[in-house]
Nucleic acid binder design. Structure first.
Lengths: 211, 211, 211, 211
DNA sequence: GATGAATGAGGATTCATTCAT
DNA sequence: AATGAATGAATCCTCATTCAT
């Protein structure tokens, strides 16, 4: 799954090398098996390090896990914040769908980590909710009210629409094994990715139209 | 979370004894924390049993886990199989959405268990895919071709549509913590459930219309 | 509980079948893996019984183990006692070697059980020593003094000679895996058994002769 | 029984640390009770260590057990290999008997471990057979053919003679409890050891003579 | 910053044994 | 007699974490 190592990179920071490699390995493993399903030894092994060395960089397994999430969520939040600023642009919706999909494409671990966190409904989800998601949702709601979506749906449907869009966009990634095994389609292929983006645009368009 | 004990089986049910109580407890716990996140001791404790007693009923933690899934999936599959038979009825789509949501409402652990299994991409998913999902998808595809959906989408979008419908229907349940914490809405309330069904119908209707 | 000793022996006793089958299975398993290496479940399984049923026939795993040894040792002791009575016969030594080997041949578990008991140096060995072996050795010593062996060895060698004869006779059986794997010979074959008897006679003869 | 700690290795020995202490304790315990009869907790306790610490030095109980055997067998094999080189010396046989007995005297656990392994007829015996014993036996056979033994026995008796010599030499050690309890003799005394060596020489001499 | 070694707690599973049926 | 179910204790082993080097 080793995508993590390619995503981020303060290359210049000298003290960052090992910590970053730990984060990369941990991200892959946590995405694959969840917090409880991964041992510190496994992570250390994946980096070629002794178990104990992990604790020179992170104070606990939990802290490492949260560092993985924090690091992964930051660029996502930035993308969403940027999108919020230009919500009144004509093609704002399509642009956001394209940008989001492209970003998740490069960070395929992220949707899996987030969805696991939602399923676990743990302590971190609280932070995730307060810190990252709530502001985004607030802005999204505000934008929807001003846009043509508003006219298209009853006012109390906005939560369900947001939820739907989350699932449609993120689900493409975190349900990849399902796609692969059951639908007989390779979701990581360039072709499918393109098809998914176009599909998303069409879905958004149709859902917006009042019938 | 204790919903499992209410779902299945009456008093006279021969499978109503300890094995069922173990399955109930295990279902709740596995749904909450995943296979790796639950210990046999916890399950035993939840049933008021000694750890060792679990093994008088299930040969291993894994076997218990799979028994939980098998038991949970059976009624779901029956619902879908029944729906497949009456696909040409005028309101077939709406009926299926209602039936499915009602069923998942009564088995709220199930979507979480399934989504965890998809994320884990483990051995069981293989069985899940071959045994339960693939046949359903095949029928669904066949039905879509004959229906007005076909005209509405390009032929290569069917996988994406199926995936979307899975996420929209099941995601309502397995992302409940997100709904609760971020959207400030109680997804388990009767009111929300009704709203979600109506929302699903509307989504289906809009997606079906060619634009 | 002294049940085992009452239940055995009466071949016609119909209530005896199960106890004997348990003893048979236990004897095989204990001989193969020792007391600690066998579980009650294995024994029950070998007889096609539930674990708990064992305790209807023997009060504990230990009691079963000792019943196995007691049953096995009895005919051996009888053979040796009979031999002691006719020690002055001309071919007494050869006859004993033949009888012993024939008997052990039919009870190949016995030498293994005895040698395991000796290695374990446990409680049972005490009984084994006091009850079965000491009397035999006493008689053997007495006989040796009167026979031509006496002239052949210094008086303080008798213990070593007895030990040697034990090892040469019993070792053929309890070291069978060694013979098979290292010497490339099948110790359970009729041919080898005959050869071993002749070998034993020759060894006895040579050791008796003063040089 | 604690002989293991005295046998091998000086203070400067690099392998003198915890691993060696574990091996020493394990050797004693395995010799006393066999693989199945000893728990990792017992071994750890004998070394004054936590159970888990054992696994910092040996990957499993089985691996520890095999390390014990490997370490114990090495010097034995060397002695036998050295003896094989000087088989044509005039007193080669007597020298080997003396050397072997002296060595086993200092490693009294070894014969017990070997005989237990033979009784168990397990996986390790295969290795024991292929790696250690077979080469020794081959050389022994070759030597016997050239020596005066050959004239003294029929050619097909060599396996039985080798087996006899194994039992007479090693049995003195692994049947020590029998000697002690039944024969009323202390096999670990200096006096008995000397008597046994002289006895062995005499036995070898008598068996060699054709009658 | 890295590591070998140590550890208490806990992991799943098996143990011998008991008891009601 | 036989058994299914229950259990406390023990099995081997892994857990996350600490600490001296």
């Amino acid at each position: 799954m080793g995508k993590a190592s390619e995503q981020i990179g303060g290359v210049g920071d000298p003290s960052n090398g090992t910590s970053r490699r730990i984060l990369d390995a941990a991200e892959d493993l946590f995405a694959d098996a969840g917090f409880a399903g991964v041992s510190v030894r496994e992570i250390a092994g994946a980096v070629g390090l002794n178990q104990a060395s992990i604790y020179n960089h992170f104070s606990s397994k939990r802290a490492l896990y949260e560092a993985v999430l924090d690091r992964g969520l930051r660029p996502l939040q930035e993308t969403l914040a940027a999108a919020a600023l230009s919500l009144d642009a004509p093609d704002a919706g399509d642009r956001l769908l394209e940008d989001l999909t492209e970003q998740l494409w490069r960070s395929p671990n992220l949707p899996r980590l987030i969805q696991r966190e939602i399923l676990d409904d743990g302590e971190y989800l609280e932070r995730l909710a307060e810190q990252w998601l709530r502001p985004i949702v607030e802005e999204g709601r505000g934008a929807m009210e001003k846009s043509s979506w508003a006219a298209s749906w009853e006012s109390d449907s906005d939560s369900l629409i947001i939820l739907l869009m989350y699932h449609v966009i993120f689900g493409y990634f975190f349900s990849a094994p399902l796609t692969r095994r059951v639908l007989g389609v390779e979701p990581a292929s360039e072709e499918m990715r393109h098809r998914q983006v176009e599909f998303l645009k069409l879905v958004a368009q149709r859902l917006m139209v009042s019938s």
